[in-house]
Design a protein around this nucleic acid. Sequence first.
DNA 1: CTTGACACAGAACAGGCGTTCGAGTATCAT
DNA 2: ATGATACTCGAACGCCTGTTCTGTGTCAAG
Lengths: 224, 224
Amino acid sequence: MMMVRKSKGLGERHQKILDFIADYQREHKHPPSIREIGEYCEISSTSVVNYYLDQLEKNGHIERDRKISRGVRLTNSTPLSEMFRVPVLGVIQAGEPIPIPASDFTSFTAEDTIDVAMSLMPTKEKGKDLFALQVQGESMIDAMVNDGDIIILKPVQEARNGEMVAVWLSDRNETTLKFFFKEKDRYRLQPANPTMQPIYVNKSEPLEIKGRVVMVIRKIERHM
Amino acid sequence: MMMVRKSKGLGERHQKILDFIADYQREHKHPPSIREIGEYCEISSTSVVNYYLDQLEKNGHIERDRKISRGVRLTNSTPLSEMFRVPVLGVIQAGEPIPIPASDFTSFTAEDTIDVAMSLMPTKEKGKDLFALQVQGESMIDAMVNDGDIIILKPVQEARNGEMVAVWLSDRNETTLKFFFKEKDRYRLQPANPTMQPIYVNKSEPLEIKGRVVMVIRKIERHM
DNA sequence: CTTGACACAGAACAGGCGTTCGAGTATCAT
DNA sequence: ATGATACTCGAACGCCTGTTCTGTGTCAAG
């Protein structure tokens, strides 16, 4: 018979404690005490909390300042309440489909992440399901997006008029970033660059909206 | 005779405490205790520290969670050690000169600021003298920069080949963002959009480099 | 001079809080 | 059965820490 508990090194109890520390930190601006953790997680003894805390520390999930009140903090994720941590799921380029988030990527696995200040986030885009892609190639210059840029988008299947979306045109084998407009019996995909002409997609053609672009970040290291 | 102490509501003692809290927080990842503050600021009594903390709280400089260990935190600036706070000095547009930072804008005055995660900063661009401008108009689409974009730049007067700079051509009354190249007896200003042609500036023409572009941020709220 | 606000010290109190220890209870491999 | 491992509990110890109270010296205003 298999052991149910400790199935993969991080039990339900561990996760609950981790979540609580994050929530508490975000709400109170300071870490919880051992007893507060115990109360929330329905652990009646401080020694048990300490027991789990020790394990979490060994696994590298938290850091502790021994002997110091509320000296617990998360290590990895560490969304310091003012930051958004967005996973970079891959690259986006004209000729390839878009990597979309797995169903349960709440606890995104390792890979690259980027931090974005809350204050930069447009319109409370606080849905934690945002993800990022790095643009490869210069095929999206009509969207004012350059090679190497990072675009942050929200996974959606539908769009309202005027929103910038990442779409996959399976007929044309093409991924593109455009402003989306639904017209009588076609879709108009308008480039961000106003000097360029829109493309039209008949409604009979397949058009998969993969996400709505929320932000574009360009880091300029050097060039050419 | 004037009172020297308490000259403007924030004495030297207050400032020292504020600085210490910031330093301590940055180094230890958690706030200091009253006694630790006292020790550093050479205050022998916890009640005196408490005395100052109360004042700082009234003035809105800190927040306190009463009865809770280490329940002190800074309110205003709060650059959480993982953030860069960059002042937005104004707008940049084709027909106008660039607002450049005042000589001593270390303590930038109120105005708008944006937060950028440290981890997004290219190549340890940690010189705290970065500043930001908001792009107005669509005149810089050849630099892949759109209306409303925010560009972050470092104030420099000279540039190396291949760097993207903001230049002011006083003869032409024009501000522009281009990749900078020095050639035999002229400057080549190369648009970021590879489909567009460079412009050339003779070395006899005045060309003022105002800053090197470090990052471009585009928030897409809605459009058109 | 008296008064009172202000800055500070010191001590003591009462919880808060991390730590440690002894002991009990499952589950599983041998 | 037996022992090992994982997990849980409760209590006690002792330092940590915020709070509060009393007292002292300074300085400006009345």
